[in-house]
Simulated assay, not measured.
Amino acid sequence: MTIEGITETGRYLAFMLHGEVYALDIMQVREVLDYTEITTVPRMPDFMRGVINLRGGVVPVVDLRLKFGMPATEKGVNTCIIIMETDIDGERALIGALADSVREVLDLEPDQVEPAPRIGTRLKTEFIKGMGKKNEEFIIILDIDRVFSADELSGVQETGLQAEG
């Protein structure tokens, strides 16, 4: 059983979070940066680690581990920031996400992607686009536009705009 609408091979950036493999549509990934110091912004949600300067622009950085209820990302030799483009109230915006490491760019055929599991109402899976499977390993494919609520990201976007001004 494949996901409706996925009829072509998809390219994804696979990365690690707390021992699990996650992936993002490569078309939403702008670049991968080595870990850099993050400037903390007061009164942001816990998962918001702060902002970084990206070629003169302010980019908010989130900790997906915290957003997903895992322990905070610790800086390690492979820790990186994935710069991605997401939709905030109909506008495209850049956001950085901490990752333990980046694994690879991979191609998944439509028959290698299944719908996100339905696990009752307690676990929210609306931000999971699907579950990929490659070499007997599961890959959680994120729909980054649905990971954060519009309210969460509009607060993040305002912080970036205030820091630029």
Rank of each mutant, 00 (worst) to 15 (best):
P71R: 06
P71M: 10
P71C: 07
A72Q: 15
T73I: 08
T73M: 11
E74Q: 14
K75L: 13
K75R: 14
G76L: 08
G76Y: 00
V77E: 15
V77I: 14
V77C: 08
N78D: 14
N78Q: 13
N78V: 05
N78Y: 06
T79Q: 06
T79I: 06
T79R: 01
T79K: 05
T79D: 02
T79G: 04
C80T: 06
C80G: 05
C80R: 11
I81L: 01
I82M: 01
I82A: 02
I82Y: 04
I83H: 03
I83Y: 02
I83E: 09
I83D: 03
M84K: 00
M84Q: 10
T86H: 09
D87S: 13
D87G: 07
I88P: 05
I88K: 01
I88H: 05
D89L: 14
D89V: 07
G90N: 10
G90Q: 08
A93S: 13
A93V: 11
A93D: 11
A93F: 14
A93G: 01
A93Q: 15
L94P: 05
L94C: 03
A97F: 06
L98F: 08
L98K: 02
A99L: 01
A99F: 07
A99S: 03
A99T: 02
D100H: 00
D100N: 09
D100I: 07
D100M: 06
S101N: 09
S101F: 00
S101R: 14
S101K: 13
S101G: 12
E104P: 12
V105A: 10
V105C: 10
V105D: 07
V105F: 12
V105E: 08
V105N: 06
D107H: 14
L108T: 08
L108P: 08
L108A: 06
E109Q: 13
D111E: 15
D111Y: 15
D111S: 07
D111P: 04
Q112A: 14
Q112R: 09
Q112V: 09
Q112L: 07
